[in-house]
């Protein structure tokens, strides 16, 4: 997809519009940062951070209109990481974009650091909503989308939710409201890696058939490979919006993607790599 296809008509800064190969490189950098900061922190959630890395890279470096020099610019697009435990991916993207120095990533989860174990919007520039308790981000995105409509603003709202998170009732309350209010400026992305803390979704609490559920709730549903950059860009592009309907992108992903010994391993939902594992992971990701 070309940069022109996603450029806004407004006077706002255009998306950075990295090419596919550059976005792949951004995602690789983000994955490296995730591993390094989690290894340094000694705790945290690698699996769901790595599964979301390609999507988050596409949002921050191609799709979203935002300005790291002006994190409070009112007309920016918004990204809410509803699955807040995956915040290493968000922190890495924000640092990569220039919201704060990269060195700060190594303070993750340490006393006095703005980089809390789950995102705190009051502490970190670029974090649009405080999350961490699952199920709440989509509702806040509904409020942001309604406010954008009220302002007759072109800003778009993106919310990433998890599959285990989809077991929360509030997700479906917000789903109903988004369709009711015809929020076609709202795009939700389901990071569908299939695993949650206690095991596979299918064993813990089935979420399938998830596409049918969102369709039944009145959403425009798109299914993609959540690691295929062109597919992600295509799904997120404004021309894939359906007039009068919010869009749900069901992104099929692999938990722990990019690190062979973490891929598809439930235990790496909430276990940080040790020093040896981190070195092995970084070697796989490449320098």
């Amino acid at each position: 997809m070309s940069k022109q296809e996603v450029e806004s008509k407004s006077s706002a800064p255009a998306p950075q519009g990295d090419t596919v190969s550059l976005l792949q490189e951004r995602a690789r950098q983000i994955r490296r940062d995730i591993i390094m900061m989690l290894a340094e922190a000694g705790s945290g959630h690698p699996g769901g951070s790595l599964s979301a890395a390609d999507i988050v890279a596409c949002l921050y470096f191609h799709i979203m209109r935002h300005d790291p020099a002006r994190p409070d610019w009112p007309e920016r697009d918004r990204f809410v990481l509803s699955k807040g435990h995956a915040c290493p991916v968000l922190y890495a993207a924000l640092a990569e974009a220039g919201y704060f120095p990269k060195e700060q990533l190594m303070s993750l989860r340490k006393l006095g650091s703005p980089l809390q174990g789950h995102p705190d919007m009051c502490k970190v520039p670029g974090v649009e909503m405080t999350t961490g308790s699952l199920g709440q981000g989509l509702a806040t995105g509904v409020g942001m989308a309604l406010a954008a409509k009220l302002d007759k603003s072109p800003r778009r709202i993106f919310v990433m939710i998890g599959d285990g998170e989809s077991q929360e009732g509030q997700i479906w309350e917000a789903s109903m409201a988004a369709a009711h209010y015809k929020l076609d400026n709202l795009t939700a992305i389901l990071d569908f890696n299939g695993l949650q803390i206690d095991g596979p979704n299918a064993e813990v609490m089935a979420v399938q058939p998830v596409a049918d559920k969102w369709k039944a709730f009145g959403w425009n549903v798109v299914e993609i490979d959540g690691h295929d950059i062109p597919q992600i860009l295509h799904a997120l592009s404004p021309d894939r919006k359906a007039a009068g309907k919010p869009t749900m992108i069901i992104a099929h992903t692999v938990k722990g993607k990019g690190v062979s010994f973490m891929e598809g391993v439930v235990d790496f939902h909430g276990k940080a790599p040790n020093k040896e594992q981190a070195e092995k992971a970084l070697a796989e990701l490449g320098t």
């Binding site: 919007m121 649009e128 109903m176």
Partner: peptide
């Protein structure tokens, strides 16, 4: 135009209120 009913869904309403608030409302 400035009134939003969320139906019988108080959790969603509070979340949406936070979304409005961070959008300057």
């Amino acid at each position: 135009d400035r009134f939003f009913n969320f139906g019988v869904a108080e959790a969603d309403m509070i979340g949406a209120a936070a979304g409005f608030a961070v959008s300057g409302k």
